[in-house]
Amino acid sequence: MSNMLEINNLHAGIGETQILNGLDLTVNSGEIHAIMGPNGSGKSTLAQVIAGHADYRVSAGTVSYKGEDLLEYEPEERARRGIFLGFQYPVEIPGVNNAYLLKAALNAKRRHNGLAEIDAFEFLQLARKKMSDLGMDPVFLNRGVNEGFSGGEKKRNEILQMAMLEPELAILDETDSGLDIDALKAVAAGVNALRDPARAIVLVTHYQRLLDYVEPDFVHVLSDGKIARSGDKSLALELEEKGYEWIREAAAG
């Protein structure tokens, strides 16, 4: 197992508000990490900083990805190097065909890796296969990106994109929130299918629920912008039982 993502003493915020206060995290390939924590603890900020959202400013610390300084790269360069963010609120892009976006994304990555672009026929075959694995109606390919999708459909669409792009580091930001049990199972199956010794997955989640279906190797609890406690999957169950206050008190005491 090699070192995929290494975060040291990360301080970051949005505007004048400081959100992450010295966060450390190491993720190796082949691992699944769950990052939990109460609202406002900095979970989504961590995801956005890794993906390179311009609104988030890093004031101190380092983020290295496969041995390179990740913060040097533009968002699209990070994506092409294998980082995928599953958005908490996937945006709608009216009129832009879902298949078109997906194919453009796939080819941007293939070009970066020196591979030939995938043609329309190969692409459709691949997309149909992945969609059937996820239990998605192929008709979604021809709709506008997330245009008029239900919450569950948007999240499945994120998982479809992940399955197509085969990232090395996937960060799923509250992908489980707002899903009914069938959608949750479908999303979990999609994540489990991507489990691979060469890939790392970071699940950002508020609830334990998703972890019943995707078993993490490590669970971290964020509090006030840093990791307050790390453990194995039993930590998630303990949290479920005792609530986040328990961590906060423990951190304070």
């Binding site: 993906a51 311009a54 995928f84 958005f87 892009i93 976006l101 994304a105 941007a108 994109q161 792009l165």
Partner: peptide
């Protein structure tokens, strides 16, 4: 929107290509 552009860029698509894609979708 900035969110639309970031979404596309996170998928590996350059900002310029993202604008083109969104504009062409608008004109479809």
């Amino acid at each position: 929107s900035a969110d639309q552009l970031f979404y596309c860029r996170q998928r590996g698509i350059s900002e310029e290509d993202a604008v083109n894609m969104i504009v062409n979708g608008f004109c479809k």
